[in-house]
Design a protein around this nucleic acid. Structure first.
Lengths: 230, 230
DNA sequence: CTGGAGGCAATTGCATGCACTTTTTGCCTT
DNA sequence: AAGGCAAAAAGTGCATGCAATTGCCTCCAG
């Protein structure tokens, strides 16, 4: 190989591959079921097959990629049933995070949560889906961190990444933006008054609704269209 | 390299390495902090460095191994704080599994759970720690499966494997065996009568107690003794 | 036309080689 | 004797090569 691959940020080549391929899966650019050819990927990213292979192995360990011995790797394909189980897990995990957050967030964390949440109200008014999506992501991350439990945090983030391809389109549903904000509001209120039970319930309900909203789109998502790899 | 490595069961070489190294970590044969030298491991298992590298990468993705770029891999070392967070997560996960189990187990599953649980009472009477440990493991696995949620199952099993090195010695504590059985009994009873709330609480409490029991030994566990790799 | 056997191309799996980074060792200076 | 520096040793990271497996295509028999 020749030219030093530029762009893509630091870390070892393997890490870059994990991020690069993982991103493409999580963002839905690579569809479930799509073939991940080592040679093409290597060529596409201008590296040898070795780091690509290692990356695929790690992604497989994370559940984003499915590997059939001697038969190549594909983007993990989840059955409707498995997807439901992930969503349900997500609801429970978020409930735990919210519950712990209500009990453990520092006053600083509570303040920030409230402020950012209020700020996101503006995005709703403007109907700025993209921006709200960002706020939404941040909002949930705050809950995960606010639980002050590293392992739960990791599990939750991991689970969220597995859902990412399926929940992307959720804010396309009319009125979903405002509803989402109101659901967040319930969570925030509960957390602010330290009501862990209410916070947990609100968070669980929130995810359940997202789950249903996403199910609408999941139906469309089962044509593993073959597109150029990258 | 020469002789076909025999023994260790099938799958690709990488999978074998993942299992072999993972087992040694989970069973405590390799201690947290211990260096995992690619070359030695490769020599020990009579394979080249490549599959060992891939295995280490996957184990790292699973959290069992820690990888410092250019500086080798070590068995993941968890701080007392992180360990506590894993135990706490475990308690929550088990609570979820027990709760779902109470709601969803088939009558067959309930029957088997009860039967095996009663059978394990005999191990307690005999003080057969090893045997009880096996029953214990099975018991919890039943709960995980009984939840009828693949993803929760996976998360829970994963989390359990991370705790394995630290909870090995729990049954060494005098009287722990009988106490453990009684705690199981609470869980079983609640599940049998479909009381999900009680089942969840009983499971959470059970793990919390194990957590404390293990903490006693965790203190001893911080001499990352260097022993021969395998 | 269907089903299957055989061979070929494509792709994976593992081994090896080389470059680069980190760590160690031994010498020199203060 | 302690500290620092430099060169060597060790070990990781990636590329490449080769054997083995799979999947496909063709061709032939029924």
């Amino acid at each position: 190989m020749s030219g030093k691959r530029s762009l893509i940020r630091s870390g070892t080549t393997v890490d870059q591959m994990v991020r690069a391929i993982g991103d493409r899966i999580v963002t839905g650019y690579l569809r479930p079921g799509e073939k991940l050819d080592e040679t093409s990927l290597a060529a596409r990213f201008d590296v040898s097959r070795t780091p690509v292979r290692e990356a695929l192995g790690q992604l497989s360990a994370m559940g984003l990629v499915e590997r059939r011995p001697n038969r190549g790797a594909i983007v993990a394909v989840v059955t409707q049933e498995h997807l439901a189980s992930i969503f349900e897990s997500m609801a429970e995990l978020e409930a735990i995070c919210a519950r712990f957050s209500a009990e453990r967030m520092t006053s600083n964390e509570r303040r920030r949560l409230e402020i950012e949440h209020q700020a996101s109200a503006r995005m709703v008014q403007l109907g700025a889906k993209e921006d709200y999506e960002y706020f939404n992501h941040e909002f949930h991350s705050r809950l995960y961190r606010g639980a002050h439990n590293t392992h739960i945090h990791d599990l939750t983030v991991m689970t969220r990444s597995r859902l990412a391809p399926f929940r992307r389109a959720q804010f396309m549903l009319p009125g979903r933006l405002a509803k989402s904000w109101q659901e967040h509001d319930l969570i925030v209120t509960a957390i602010m008054r330290g009501d862990s039970v209410a916070a947990g319930k609100a968070a669980r309900d929130h995810v359940s609704i997202v789950s249903e909203a996403s199910a609408v789109f999941a139906a469309d998502d089962r044509k593993p269209i073959r597109r150029d790899v990258a």
